[in-house]
Simulated scan of single mutants.
Amino acid sequence: MTTHGEGTSPGQATDEAEATKRALKAQLFHDARQEPGKPCPCGESGGLHGEECDCEDGAVLVHTMRVANGENLTEWEDTFRCSLGCNECTQTVTLPDTPWGVRETVNGRVQLRVFSGVVHGQEEHGIVNAWAY
């Protein structure tokens, strides 16, 4: 059985190809040179993009990256950098309509599989495509 998102029942499984496209679109705006004052490259409002940084007058936080994060299939980690380069921070966001992978039962074990091409924050810890719990 494969389910997409945290609240999806088996009868409501989202087409994996479409879910993968949404996940890739959610993270593929990576732009380390994003200009302050322009709309957030992720297309969303809210977040820290455009917030003042406390390092110097005129410095603002700029949304530069989004990666899948944790075991919640709709949880992502956004990275923001100071427009003057003094600071970088992260913020966890939940995108209910944009899962980054699927929860599957394989040989009686539940595992998470990251969609092909999606970057997951746990990859640096040796978790690349699937892990069981």
Rank of each mutant, 00 (worst) to 15 (best):
M1E: 12
P96I: 00
D15K: 05
C42E: 07
E124A: 03
V106C: 11
E44W: 01
F29M: 08
V106G: 03
M1H: 14
E56T: 07
T94N: 13
V119F: 10
V102L: 13
T20I: 06
A23R: 12
V119K: 12
T79F: 09
E52V: 03
F115P: 06
E44C: 05
G43E: 11
D97I: 03
G70W: 08
P41K: 08
G121N: 13
E123S: 09
A59S: 11
D57A: 02
T20G: 02
T105S: 12
V93H: 08
T2F: 07
V62H: 11
D54V: 04
P10H: 08
L95M: 11
R66N: 04
R109S: 14
H125D: 10
Y133H: 13
E124W: 05
N69F: 14
I127R: 10
P96F: 06
G50C: 09
C40V: 05
D57Q: 05
L95P: 02
A17E: 11
E51C: 02
V67G: 01
R22P: 02
V62P: 01
W100F: 15
E44V: 00
R103S: 15
T79W: 04
E51Y: 01
E52N: 05
C53V: 02
V60P: 00
V128W: 15
G85D: 04
Q122V: 07
E56A: 09
V60G: 03
M1P: 08
H125E: 12
F115S: 08
D57T: 01
A132Y: 14
G5W: 06
E124F: 04
E75N: 12
G46D: 06
A19Y: 06
V106I: 15
L24H: 01
L73N: 00
H4S: 14
K38I: 07
D97E: 14
T64R: 03
G43H: 10
C40G: 08
T64E: 07
V106P: 04
H49N: 08
E104P: 02
T98G: 06
G70E: 14
L28S: 15
E71I: 13
P96L: 04
G11D: 09
E35F: 02
A32S: 11
K21C: 08
Q122P: 00
P39M: 13
T105L: 13
A130Q: 11
S83R: 01
T20P: 06
S116D: 15
G101H: 14
S45G: 15
H120V: 02
T3P: 00
R81Q: 10
T20N: 10
F80Q: 03
C40L: 06
T3L: 15
C40I: 00
W131D: 08
T92W: 01
T8Y: 04
A19W: 00
G85C: 03
T3Q: 14
F80N: 00
G46S: 10
T20H: 05
E35I: 09
I127T: 09
Q12G: 05
D78K: 03
R81F: 04
Y133P: 13
C40A: 15
N87F: 03
W131Q: 12
T92V: 12
P36R: 11
T98L: 09
C55Q: 12
R113L: 13
G46L: 05
A130N: 10
C55H: 12
C42Q: 07
A19H: 02
V114C: 09
V106H: 11
